[in-house]
Amino acid sequence: MTSPISRGFRGRRPNAGAAARLPPGQYETHDFPVLSAGPTPHTPLAKWSFTLGARGAPSVTWSWDEFEALPHETITRDIHCVTKWSKFDTVWTGVSIDTIIAAGAEKGIAPAPYVVAVCDGGYTTNLPLADVTGGKAWIAVGYDDKPLHPEHGGPARLLVPHLYFWKSAKWVRELHFRDHDEPGFWEALGYHMRGDPWKEQRYTGDA
């Protein structure tokens, strides 16, 4: 279907540099809007832990101090929210999922083709392993050189900047390997299983 012209709509085009970085249907924002389905959890660091697990295998759990002792990276990426905003050059610090998976492998946890992230508040999201390995995903604990604010997912959130930002689950506490792709919270409520912004995979049934 060809879109009809919106009479009298001129719009505000992004400059050429921004246009090349904006996936279809997105616009650039300089704010950092907050999105979540419920109240913001506030987990004290003394009670925080992160667990990597798989079915039928013992899991590995890091305390906050142990997690902070893992090698951290600084990550600068554009992020794209399914609600249409994109924000360029966001700067994060965090631990690569590759690092976490390698640490798990030393304890006998074998990777599987999919992962599910589990968060405070019961939120989950599903991802193919290939989308979180090879330097594409992190557990972020810092934003703009500061500890990650609870509203934005602190103390720690998943960061998968090449997918729509709901996949970068806030308040992440666990990562589990799965043999099959099982829909998480938003994926069971009509959002796309993978969520590639460049393919505009917003909702269930999008290509």
């Binding site: 924002t29 704010d31 809007p33 907050v34 999105l35 979540s36 109240p39 905003w85």
Partner: peptide, 11 residues
């Protein structure tokens, strides 16, 4: 919860 961000639209 549903938030209306400063950039418009439900967030």
């Amino acid at each position: 919860t549903e938030r209306f961000g400063p950039t418009g639209g439900p967030a």
